[in-house]
Design a binder for these strands. Sequence first.
DNA 1: GAGTGTGAAAACATTCACAGCT
DNA 2: AGCTGTGAATGTTTTCACACTC
Lengths: 216, 216
Amino acid sequence: MLIDCALVKSKIPEATVKRLSLYLNCIAEVGNSNSRISSEKLAKLARVNPAQVRRDLSYLGSLGTRGVGYDLSTLKNQLNIALGLVEGWSAIIVGAGNLGSALAQYEGFEDKGFAIVGLYDVDSKKISTKIAGLVVKHIEKINDDIKKYKVAIGIITTPSEFAQDTANLLIAGGIKSILNFAPSRIESTDSGVVIKNVDLSQELQVLSYYLDEPLK
Amino acid sequence: MLIDCALVKSKIPEATVKRLSLYLNCIAEVGNSNSRISSEKLAKLARVNPAQVRRDLSYLGSLGTRGVGYDLSTLKNQLNIALGLVEGWSAIIVGAGNLGSALAQYEGFEDKGFAIVGLYDVDSKKISTKIAGLVVKHIEKINDDIKKYKVAIGIITTPSEFAQDTANLLIAGGIKSILNFAPSRIESTDSGVVIKNVDLSQELQVLSYYLDEPLK
DNA sequence: GAGTGTGAAAACATTCACAGCT
DNA sequence: AGCTGTGAATGTTTTCACACTC
């Protein structure tokens, strides 16, 4: 039997993908005087089990050195590659209110290789003002910009009632994935488009459960 | 044998707790002309399996009626009770920038029974201004307010470099749980305090993984 | 000696499938 | 007839424990 490879990339479990992103954040803060890190140290930073770290990283190949640990810069690189953060995805934000403005200047995005290339609204008071280095544009410019900047990701921070319409607009414009921060859930009208609804109050509700019943 | 009950509350799995919060959001949007909902309908709204819905809700007791479904208002009540959203937790926000302002007026919070009772900063330009009905106060007032309003939850939206100091301040003030939206991770200096680090860029990174490798 | 990489075991989560209630 | 509640089956994730490498 000859080949059975190349195209068969080992799928990384969803739970692991989330932690890879976590690991990247954890080591971002590690001083670069240390050029190495062990699974135990990383586990402590990420508050997970060391075996978990090793298992997760093993999906990226044999990055570590037995008896030594993982080389920090190699690890950063490989995590970035695995998560597709080296492609430099472009994203746009629809809704220039507080949440949109906050995300536009969120330190975490640019650091991770996401370029926010546009910020849109319908409010004429906001249009042409500058937020986090971006000029707010009218939403009707969106279609052109998606093509022009090859935008892959749309971030929705409009009021709830406009979230679905905005999503439809983005999908019609050819965007491939949407992150919705509005509190109402939105649906994809096109199965090729990935939609992620982020519920900012969910974490608070989960916290509430554990506050309420510490015995459980 | 006599008792073996009362104190023994059946623990709800973490994955279920998250979905309970999701279900609550889904049914919030259902018109109240319908007084009932079946596991199948709710499953469609939440995009999960109907059996999942039934299993999850069964942790709250036998809420449904066979052959009929779940009574909507009972369901809402029970979800609120299970998640501890009826205690009316008070929360404060530290950091009156865009993110803090966005959260202060986030529709999702008040709806879910969280009262934001304070908004703090150190910037004298912001102090005494009004955001979302709240007067921004200097952070040195925090200790008194935590006691006065019996604040259970602290929300951190400061720049990264001040997040840990802010957390320490909140913990010293007697707060029981912290939600950190700053992009750097913070640690608890007191094991009795629950800390949740929310990484707004994580969802984007996960999205990036799936954009990058749709084959996986 | 120190720390990775990974089979095998254990824990956890989801889904099926159907008995049982209304 | 319709839909819940739940044992049992299946699938996924975490953890253990140790052979193996540097």
